[in-house]
Design a binder for these strands. Sequence first.
DNA 1: TTATTATATTATAATAATTATAAACTAATA
DNA 2: TATTAGTTTATAATTATTATAATATAATAA
Lengths: 131, 131
Amino acid sequence: MTLQRLAVLEFLEGNTNHPSVEEIYRNLKKKYPTLSQATIYTSLQVLRKTGEIQELSIRKEKTCFDPNPKPHHHFYCQECKKILDIEISCPVAEKQWVDGHKVKEVQAYFYGICNYCLKKTKNKRRIGGIT
Amino acid sequence: MTLQRLAVLEFLEGNTNHPSVEEIYRNLKKKYPTLSQATIYTSLQVLRKTGEIQELSIRKEKTCFDPNPKPHHHFYCQECKKILDIEISCPVAEKQWVDGHKVKEVQAYFYGICNYCLKKTKNKRRIGGIT
DNA sequence: TTATTATATTATAATAATTATAAACTAATA
DNA sequence: TATTAGTTTATAATTATTATAATATAATAA
């Protein structure tokens, strides 16, 4: 465990925003100006392989990372673009089998409009509309 | 619906392999040598938006497409790299709500070793081993 | 039919994420 | 101290995807 790798892990730990590589790099660069982008990539892959973090492909254009390596699902809000953790039980992840196939990892992505954005647009309608 | 778009749709229809953009392009190029890669991209996006096909981000490195637009899950075999359809009921997709968030789309990806590859390695062990 | 318009396709270039490579560095060990 | 292995850095290369502009096609109006 090197200084750089620790910095990546530390940054992720306190972070529930599921940052992308670019965000991680941009933020750590302030504190460690010598840091290179390639190091972020390799560090993230090492941390993923040792099971300390998990990788999300919820947004096609950029990969995001989650400091919680335990299997859980994710929600992507198409309005505010936030990624939220979803804690529901998943029979497939628990049993580790589906249709005779051995399951080692599960990634479930829900896309839609989050609670907060739903409320926001409802209020807007209320203010602008008749009621 | 243009000729090119129809060709893309036709190629996908008979195909349960969930081909990537590159595969689609390579195959259609034989029959339609004038076809361009950009057309494949735009055609696929048009077909996706009209709900005729669905897009899979199961492999980070390339996007794949499924002619079946109905919500269902997918399994990626880390051994043979095949993508298989998984037909199990998904409460979240059915209810369209989770934790107060409105769900419009669900993508669930299972990663592991498929039925077929499991049998293959078991047989190999049997032949090579003591039993 | 011809002119006009809108839309689709193509080819090319641009962008952006990621990976590969090689050199410099670090830390551990002989 | 010398050597080794592994890490970081900087740079270049690769690759998927998107944007752009020119061309082609089809649909409609005159």
